[in-house]
Design a protein around this nucleic acid. Sequence first.
DNA 1: GTTCTTGTTGATCGCGTGATCAATAAGAAG
DNA 2: CTTCTTATTGATCACGCGATCAACAAGAAC
Lengths: 221, 221
Amino acid sequence: MSSTIQKRAARKTPAERAAEIAEAAREIALEQGLSAITLRNVAARVGVASGLVAHYQPNVEALVAGIFATIVAAETEEVAGLLERLPTPLEQLGMLLETLMDGSRLDVTAIWVEAWTLGRRNEALAACVREQMDAWQAVVQRVVEAGIDAGEFETSDAPSVAWQILGMVDGLNAQALVRWDGVSDRGTHLARAVEGMVGAARGSLLPGGVPRTGPIPSPDS
Amino acid sequence: MSSTIQKRAARKTPAERAAEIAEAAREIALEQGLSAITLRNVAARVGVASGLVAHYQPNVEALVAGIFATIVAAETEEVAGLLERLPTPLEQLGMLLETLMDGSRLDVTAIWVEAWTLGRRNEALAACVREQMDAWQAVVQRVVEAGIDAGEFETSDAPSVAWQILGMVDGLNAQALVRWDGVSDRGTHLARAVEGMVGAARGSLLPGGVPRTGPIPSPDS
DNA sequence: GTTCTTGTTGATCGCGTGATCAATAAGAAG
DNA sequence: CTTCTTATTGATCACGCGATCAACAAGAAC
């Protein structure tokens, strides 16, 4: 009864400690949701007194908002980075849909959904949500516009189409949060819907995509 | 200082009182969200002691789940009722999208979004959410299948398409919860996307729809 | 007018929350 | 070794939550 207990946490640089706290809060958010970010919860994970966590933030609302921004911005940048490697907007959009629908980011989806609700009572968080939505929309819009310029897409309203694509992806992912079964080929149906919106050829957005431009007859149905 | 205060609430039938409590909880949910349904909150609105509210339910979780089901089921039935009046599946689907996207049900959308999150920690609520999602999906699937039978739609997987349409609608409405601006012609873009999914002619799902079957050239873009 | 069922009260418990701050001690600076 | 800055503690406050239950009284039944 002596090895694991330690009376007092080691003294650290404010920057170090702040990073520790942020990391702990991030993990809690991904595992248990944003509303599980409490002074005592975070403090316990860091192994520190609750007062210390409070000492590093003006208030918990700000901490929650900041962690939300951290998590979501990281995802946006990651996906945006993946896009840059692909040559054509068609491939980029196809990869975008495929990546966002592959179910590997459901924890982030849960964060989004919770943030939409929490934003009603946490103004700082609401501002972050709007900001991050704008960032996402900008990424998608860039792809759509590139596609228009390249003659691959045909739509007169790239900003709205970008919002629309985002909304669809979010909704379908939120749905997957509750219901896994029932929907087969989520990616395929979504791809077909987006093809309809951007005026791309049928099947051109599917995984085994179309390397060269031009309409390709869809296999079936 | 005498007229408005009343010492004790009038004695009522259990059925009456239960209805009062349910109605109060429903109003609170629509105005402030499901998480604002608390014993004291509901009791205050009814004008009754908090203990009485607890007396009429096994626990608050059950009350929240029940109110969610009440609100959402009412919406489903209302929309399903509207569908019955229209003759063709094409018109039905068009009206469905138009109705769900007109912004008049944002309070119910907020309930849905909150329920997705709360369902993580309220098993009774989670069960209700799945049940109500299934009910919605059934309504949409019926329309899609009718459209296939009538030769207006062409898709091999009506259940999945129904889920997909629901997901899109939910996502776009959730988006509208946070961001009103930025997206013009939400309904138009969605209609185009759904047309792509169900294999309907371009523009056939738009408000000023197409009375007779057959492809119609889109106005522009 | 009396009795009795039962709808209703409100105080109480334990819990978790955010926030605050005087007291402490670690560890760098001298 | 001593000094001093400051990271850290932990007790404390007021609050709101769900739940419980003995006590009360309204009003129907007799």
